[in-house]
Design a protein around this nucleic acid. Structure first.
Lengths: 246, 246
DNA sequence: CCATAATGTCTATTGATATAGACAACTATA
DNA sequence: TATAGTTGTCTATATCAATAGACATTATGG
């Protein structure tokens, strides 16, 4: 659709093969190569980006490493995966429900949980006195076996005792809340920023270095407006987009 | 606050000096060095990131080039700028109002305008027949003289004739809408994704290569729910964060 | 079966990236 | 006015990133 011949940039700290890998990954996600199911030939990509064929090969090798494409000698480079989950954010945001039928399998994995005292920031967010006991959970959410986000969330410990176990057993925040006595909750606010993936992102979200991560800081409250959960989540920018419906 | 010793990653297509520059830029934006107003000494940063001092110097040189820091021999490296505008997104999202008093000077500049026919995508977004005439505007928004976002927006041409001139004269979408007969409008939906900055971003948003850009696709409607504007905006991720209040 | 088109592999060369060490120049402070 | 702490500059070396060319290997279509 858009014939933007934005050439790659040289000598800027980002290797050409990485810039090209990012562009091809993004083109795949946009469905640019849907007709053939294949990436254009290496020579064609090299001409398009104005680089040597070997540089394109490095980029494709990186994408193959990620499991996005597979090169077949004599045939071409096939596209294996291409996806970008849409993630609606609204007053009734629910992770599993939001994904809906965009994925067949949905998982919520409890990586770790602990109890800690609220520092100034957390206390302000949850509208509690500094030092209040909180349950802290580290979770990883997957769709169709692929990691989508990892999150750190806090709950008031006194009100929601047993939250970690409830989540571990159900894999769902909504179900866990219901199990500890909160049948309904609403999303009060969501902050969104973007950063480069750090080392933890690379391993837990199975990203390649240089990837972009979308960070959301979300506050959920009970129907009366009392804060019940604060969550910092990190999503692979290649895998998701957010939609805010007002 | 967070002593995350996330070491830098080697041989991944992103040069160490760039990773370090990004991390320092982000630390500055987070206010980590507010007490001293200076970046830690080069030797200390080198130890922190586990790299050679010269590598840190390359990173600081890049930040100096961006005008974020200034190195003074014998004294240290001073922080000149540090900012991240908060950008509320809600049913009543207004650019100038949203910035509020976070910036003294606010500008909206009309870079270009033209008339074109709606393609399938635009027609679907604006709920119009394919081929409907649209006004297309390229705008650049600044806060305190610094570019914050560049946007491409479309309006139904028949209903909002004179939109481009009204925006050029007022620098405000809200004012321009009022001038062409729409006193009120609401944000119907906003999509948010993140990508690496392309060449146009680098020049218009005055970014350095490798920077991250937040992309929003927003639909505004009149009070009756009839689409009146579709906008694709690109923000420097270092300069802004979005807050969704429900 | 053959020509074509695609990926795979190898060698060689150049420039950017990163490390290492030494020392100069400047600032602030005891 | 020393001295410690900091940035600035220089040389040297090893590795990565990118280009260039040649040729092998594999699949497809006439």
């Amino acid at each position: 659709m858009d014939m933007q011949e934005a050439k790659v940039r040289r000598q800027n700290g980002v290797a050409l093969w990485r810039q090209i890998a990012d562009r091809i990954r993004s083109a795949i996600a946009s469905g640019d190569y849907d007709e053939t199911g294949k990436v254009p030939p290496e020579m064609m990509l090299a001409a398009q980006f104005g680089v040597n064929r070997h540089t394109v090969r490095s980029a494709l090798a990186a994408l193959a490493q990620e499991g996005i494409v597979q090169a077949l000698q004599g045939r071409g480079t096939l596209i294996l995966r291409k996806e970008r989950l849409n993630f609606p954010i609204s007053r009734r945001t629910r992770f599993n429900q939001g994904i809906g039928d965009q994925a067949r399998e949905k998982e919520g994995i409890l990586l770790a949980s602990s109890e800690e005292s609220a520092n100034a920031d957390l206390a302000a967010r949850l509208q509690l006195p500094v030092g209040t006991r909180l349950i802290r959970m580290e979770t990883l959410r997957k769709a169709d076996r692929r990691p989508v986000s990892r999150a750190t969330t806090w709950f008031p410990a006194e009100r929601f005792a047993g939250m970690a176990e409830a989540y571990r057993d159900s894999g769902s925040i909504t179900a866990a809340f219901a199990a500890v006595g909160l049948p309904d909750y609403v999303r009060a606010s969501t902050e969104i920023t973007a950063v480069h993936a750090d080392n933890d992102d690379l391993s837990s979200l199975e990203l390649s270095p240089g990837a972009i991560v979308l960070v959301t800081c979300a506050l959920n409250t009970d129907p009366d407006g009392v804060p019940v959960q604060y969550a910092v989540s990190r999503f692979s920018a290649d895998a998701v987009q957010f939609t805010i419906e007002n």
